[in-house]
Design a protein around this nucleic acid. Structure first.
Lengths: 240, 240
DNA sequence: CGTTGTTGTCAACACTGTTGCGCTGAGTCG
DNA sequence: CGACTCAGCGCAACAGTGTTGACAACAACG
């Protein structure tokens, strides 16, 4: 009962009784792994069908014998990276630390495969590992004291926010070094030369704005999610 | 002193003393407005250079006489939409309602020009209206009681989070109707047929998960930002 | 009038994802 | 053992993207 052999894309080769097709060098597994390899190279245009063909030493269009779309392949690859995230989460943490661990793991994996994470920032895979993530977050918010609609809404808040957060970081990593330099120097140059009359707040905070690190923002955003859950929990425990 | 004629892309035509170039049908203004028009059509591939040429009744490549890149045009268009957002924010609100108004306005504009909002989800324009938004958020967090690094970090938290939030919503709107239907039905079908042993939380919350609306998630995410600021403010007011 | 510089048009390039045709080679059956 | 079937792969090509360089028209200036 554990699992019917999950009829996703692997069934194409699995349908043959004895899969000892030997000659078939290209398997879904190999394609996914090659995708992860080139996605890990970090360059923005890394994950293209033709580059994937190069990496596989095969014709690019051969991939279409195993995946309907590039999109289907992307979802499969993304689910694989989600697996990496889940494997990085230790056991025996309280719910806050489980969310922190999920966030940290997601960020690490997103920065490892930026092209995938960036493309998935507004997507959902609906594949096995995503279910495990949903279960993880739902477990956390229920342990925090939420249930019913509260649990569902706060799960979506955490899931969507984390996806967006790591997607943004990944996309930033994919920018050309020049674009990134221009972005960073903006805080140091343009925001300090602004008209003090029209923008008093910016003028006052220019120095600190330039000093903010990505990790500080990341922490603030993750902690905001946890705080929101906690607050809703005490709201429910308290009155109303 | 009010403003040196902002030497962005408009300077190309402004440099000529008398701009009565008559023959010149194509001005940056017209191009930006045409871009907004086709972006408002909502289809995913709406905002292409060739479609822009159609809308202008001119050769697509003529745009490159007024903007270096499609990216530069995109930033200019995005700044224009940011202006729309700012104009929608009324005066005389407390800081919480100012952030809510900013979020609501951003969402409305993002859903109006989904192609632009989706493309800007991980970007920064560094153009006039963005400065005004920065000023607005910084004013809100200082009114809340934050200053220095706290203000800077929480500004970034709010700015980045809102950008990601409306970008996600816009991207979702750009999906093909089939993809959107598949996504919605997933909550109603797949999440209710999951193995209760392996995924007890999902099983328990399946019904509520299907019932969550995008607006509920939106509210939760915006309120989480406000709550985080409030909490940091009382932390500082109370004991350090 | 001639020169100059701006602005639109046209053709073309490099790149993307994707499809249909044909070949090969291994598995299957008579 | 020989013939057949058919999945898997390569090849060529298509529609689409952003972008560039050469050329023509035309207003402005000396």
């Amino acid at each position: 009962m554990s699992k019917p052999p999950l009829d996703t894309a692997a069934s194409a080769t699995a349908s043959r009784s004895r899969s000892k097709r030997s000659g078939s060098q290209l398997t879904p597994e190999a394609i996914i792994e090659a995708s992860l390899r080139i996605a890990a190279r970090g360059s923005a245009d890394a994950f293209t069908v033709r580059r994937l063909g190069e990496e596989l030493g095969a014709d690019p269009t051969a991939v279409y014998r195993h995946f309907r779309d590039k999109d289907e392949l992307l979802l499969e690859v993304a689910d694989r990276t989600l697996g990496e995230v889940l494997d990085s989460i230790p056991e025996g943490l309280n719910w806050q630390d489980r969310i922190r661990a999920l966030a940290d793991g997601s960020l690490a994996v997103a920065l490892k495969y930026p092209a995938v994470a960036s493309a998935m920032a507004s997507r959902t895979t609906r594949r096995p590992n995503e279910f495990r993530v949903v279960e993880l977050i739902l477990g956390a918010v229920t342990e925090a004291g939420l249930s019913g609609t509260d649990a569902a809404v706060h799960y979506r808040m955490v899931g969507d926010s984390l996806l967006a957060l790591v997607g943004q970081r990944a996309a930033y990593l994919l920018f050309s070094p020049e674009a990134r330099a221009a972005d960073e120097s903006a805080w140091n140059r343009e925001y300090r030369l602004v008209d003090p009359e029209a923008f008093p707040q910016i003028t006052k905070a220019a120095l600190e704005l330039a000093g903010v690190s990505q990790d500080q923002v990341y922490d603030a955003r993750v902690e905001a999610l946890i705080t929101a859950i906690e607050r809703r929990a005490v709201e429910l425990r308290g009155g109303a």
